[in-house]
């Protein structure tokens, strides 16, 4: 059984990607399970989806613990503290990732020994690769890696995309995009079944004092410990020469990302910024620009 685990951000079309891959495999005559992992995820938050593909009936359910192929739609996820997809791979898992880094840079930066396939969607027109079309590109790259025929991908996309009410022109454009991505990905790593058993003994749970074992949080304001920033590829930069210290950016930031320096200039906490761009739009003198997030 081939287990494909997809990781992206809410709003990128990762669920659609899993459906395109699932349907393509289904059309090829395989047994398939696909499943998005719904949680409290919001636009921009890390999310995942799973596809299982097998020649035999599938006797598995739920999340994938032993991915054959780990697909990562956005390399900012590798910086994530709480939901890092690299933590979930096994030795022989093939990693397919959308990044501008080269294979060797990636391997050394994250000390990765796994077989790697990189593709760089940044080469495409950002309008095309804007969410949620990203999912379509990711699906195409995945199908290529799984050595599926593009014709299956095309059929699958027609089925899935009309299901989410895309019109004919949009579907044609999406297929065109998928083909370009499909052709761009150089496969060469074989995706194999990865053993699923990880042993862990049974824990004997004892009674704990209710002060501990009641579901409450006695820490305060600790949400900064979770990955939050890097939700977007962009970050606001302020031109301090022209900033009038009017505080508008500070007031309107929904995420409390602004503080002030000793001279009263606004300072962005980039770990807290979700890149909503409200501050840029509202700055009355237009001195905030959006810059692609530093990749290093």
């Amino acid at each position: 059984m081939i287990n494909v685990s997809l990781h992206g951000r809410g709003g990128q079309g990762i669920k659609t990607a899993s459906h395109i891959i699932g349907t393509a495999a289904f059309l090829s005559g395989s047994y398939v399970q696909d499943q998005p992992l719904y949680g409290a995820e919001r636009r921009g938050a890390p999310i995942s989806a799973y596809v299982r593909i097998s020649r035999q009936p599938i006797l598995e359910r739920g999340t994938i613990e032993n991915p054959s192929l780990q697909v990562i739609s956005d390399d900012s996820l590798l910086e994530s503290a709480a939901d890092n997809p690299l933590e979930k791979i096994r030795e022989s898992t093939v990693v397919l990732i959308n990044t501008s880094l080269t294979k060797s840079d990636l391997a050394s930066k994250y000390s990765l020994k796994n077989p790697l396939i990189v593709f760089d969607l940044a080469k495409f027109d950002p309008e095309i690769i804007s969410r949620p079309t990203l999912g379509i590109a990711v699906a195409a790259a995945t199908c290529r890696t799984l050595e599926m025929d593009f014709d299956l991908v095309r059929q699958s996309m027609i089925k899935e995309l009309s299901g989410i009410h895309l019109d004919k022109d949009d579907i044609a454009m999406s297929i065109d995009l998928a083909k370009r991505v499909y052709d761009m990905v150089t496969h060469g790593e074989t995706v194999m079944e990865v053993s699923g058993i990880r042993e862990s003994g049974i824990f004997e749970m004892k009674f704990h004092n209710p002060a501990v074992s009641t579901c409450s949080i006695t820490a305060t304001g600790n949400s900064m410990l979770r990955e939050r920033g890097r939700w977007s590829g962009f970050q606001p930069i302020i031109d301090y020469e022209r900033c009038t210290k009017c505080m508008i950016c500070y007031v309107y930031c929904p995420d409390s990302a602004y503080t002030f320096d000793s001279k009263g200039y606004p300072v962005v906490n980039y770990d807290a910024c979700k890149g909503c761009n409200i501050c840029q739009t509202e700055c009355p003198v237009k001195v905030i620009t959006l810059v692609k997030r530093n990749k290093t």
Binding site: A211, C215, T220
Partner: peptide, 16 residues
């Protein structure tokens, strides 16, 4: 003995 709702001992209760 624990967890009570008052200003000096902030707590988040009923958390998901």
């Amino acid at each position: 003995t624990f967890g009570y709702l008052n200003a000096r001992n902030p707590v988040s209760m009923g958390v998901s």
